[in-house]
Amino acid sequence: MKVLVPIKRVVDYNVKVRVKADNSGVDLANVKMAMNPFCEIAVEEAVRLKEKGVVTEIIAVTVGSKAAQEQLRTAMALGADRSILVETDQEDVQPLAVAKVLKALVEKESPDLVILGKQAIDGDNSQTGQMLAALTGMPQGTFASEVVVADGKVNVTREVDGGLQTVALDLPAVVTTDLRLNEPRYASLPNIMKAKKKPLETVAPGDLGVDLASSTKTLKVEPPAERQAGIKVASVEELVDKLKNEAKVI
């Protein structure tokens, strides 16, 4: 069984992002980049399925600049067998464009399962997996907290409001990973070295017949308003008065 794991290079979770002075976007100069945390969970799940003997091949894929090779190498150090970089220098590729690229790769590679993060921590869109399912006609199990493959089906337990829902999907299927699915391992140094020798193929979006042009345009990016300093009140009466008449919350 073959698994395709799309991943994304994003600003490191621990970096405090700053908005560019001209409000055109987030300042990425000299900022540490890393694999999107939900993608790490997707890679880990694929590797665990391989360790269980369910999966035979894991292909990591990303859409991004040459620098994104770094994250593909990480995925291979964690256990992916090979990887594909769909190279573009275009910043801010939208989920629909990524889903189209993935559709083309699904047609080319015929995976039994596509496992990807439920969202990326930069755009926070949570759209790519769903769009891929729609474009390919594959069933989807989103926000997975448990994934079990058996008898040509994948059972996906989903975290929904008020509890857990388990859906049984025919393969091939799309699964998006939630936070509690697993705890990703660290890349071991011997595996990082082995990953350097694993195949990494680079293709252009055009080779896959996909145009990455965006149909949306970012007008302005602004940081959240700074929190105002608090004040001290002298009495309970004053507090109640302020809550009533200033904050208007009671």
């Binding site: 979770y13 540490k32 694999m35 990480t74 660290y186 890349a187 071991s188 140094l189 011997p190």
Partner: peptide, 22 residues
């Protein structure tokens, strides 16, 4: 350096962070 330390028998295994969070 890691590789040569392994060869000399000084290191058995190791892991490296892939992000600031790790």
């Amino acid at each position: 350096i890691f590789e040569s330390c392994v060869e000399k028998g000084w290191v058995l295994d190791g892991a490296m962070s892939q992000s600031l969070q790790q």
